[in-house]
Design a protein around this nucleic acid. Structure first.
Lengths: 205, 205
DNA sequence: CCTACCGATCGGTAGG
DNA sequence: CCTACCGATCGGTAGG
């Protein structure tokens, strides 16, 4: 099969297209942003590739130059949300004081969602559209996130910073308090910082 | 137009089919229940009438014996949710003690959602599918509900039961804490009462 | 409550 | 990145 008779022991075949161009990556990033808006407005199943393409000034078939399937778009939206969510949370895990750590986690979660409500609307509501493997991947990463919360709430309970109770129920209550903001938060009118402070003050007296 | 020449001054024309039969109403209630499940699983737009009909052992066209349009099904799901939500809340409004009233509202909201998470999943996530007039109607009724919450939180702040802050933000935080349960609550494993107590204890120390 | 059917739209492919 | 097209499925109607 190797028709070339040259000797240099370099890689065989055509050199891989290692790096997609900057334009390609920028355009894909825009497509993902637009897809998040479409999936938020109509849901994943009902949000069509025609909608996404039209908002980008493209034809539907051209999207297949960037992704292989519709579900790739949803996966990319989720990857963006998870990346944003997980990067900071690992530094917060090292805060020693339970009260300080819990406050930082609540604050982080409130800021996260209120800074891009449309992105997290898809993250929270459109999980059913993910392929099986992608769903499992999201579940694993979310588990890491939740574990930090559980450990911190347990520490806060042990330190008497918050009252006793089932940590799982308390964590879900706190996550709900902050996450729910994607449904009502008005980026033009409300301040993420003020809301974050409100949530912290409500839980930590 | 009146071809009848008889004299008794009774109602003209064929007597109106005043009351739908009990079987009809039972069957419609089942259809609404099934529709809620379908709209929860696939979203309103993507959830098909074929899905609903199949789950009822009917053909799609037969659903049009019960409703005129697909959106009627969504409206009926919303009407059920709102009816359940609003009936009890008016009695709670008359509790004099701010602390007691706030505790009762939080408890009511937590029990409401955890007792039928699938129903409220549609109520909270599928609003975009409603016809314009139905959406306005839901908005009006929800406003009444929220006003009770705002007034109660303001009274609780004035009484020093909870810390100061923007009542709108605090109410949204509390509503989020309780409503979010539709996403994680497992009816077979978790107790609505325990969760309601947890929420009350988290806000009222 | 059924069979049969309509026009519109869907995700995806062929081939350039 | 395009035009042209595929089979499948959608909400809804005709007519019984």
């Amino acid at each position: 099969m190797n028709t070339s008779q040259s000797d240099p022991p370099r890689k065989r075949g055509r050199p891989r297209n290692l790096e997609p161009s900057q334009e390609y990556r920028d355009r894909l990033e825009n497509i993902v942003r637009v897809a998040a808006d479409v999936f938020q407005a109509h849901g994943y199943e009902a949000g069509s590739l025609d909608d996404v393409a039209a908002a980008m000034g493209l034809r539907k078939a051209s999207l297949y130059y960037y992704v292989k399937r519709k579900s790739d778009l949803l996966r990319l939206v989720f990857e963006r949300a998870i990346t944003v969510a997980l990067t900071e949370v690992e530094t917060l895990a090292h805060l020693a004081d339970p009260r300080e750590r819990l406050a930082a986690l609540i604050r982080h979660q409130a800021l996260l969602v209120t800074r891009d409500p449309a992105l997290f609307a898809v993250f929270f509501d459109q999980r059913a559209g993910l392929e099986h493997a992608d769903l499992a991947d999201v579940g694993r990463k979310e588990h890491l996130y939740l574990r930090q919360f559980i450990l911190t709430v347990e520490a806060a309970m042990a330190a008497g910073v918050i009252g006793p109770g089932d940590p799982r129920l308390v964590v879900n209550a706190i996550i709900g308090m902050t996450s729910w903001s994607y449904k009502w938060f008005d980026t033009r009118r409300d301040s993420p910082e003020t809301f974050a402070d409100t949530c912290v003050a409500l839980v930590l007296r």
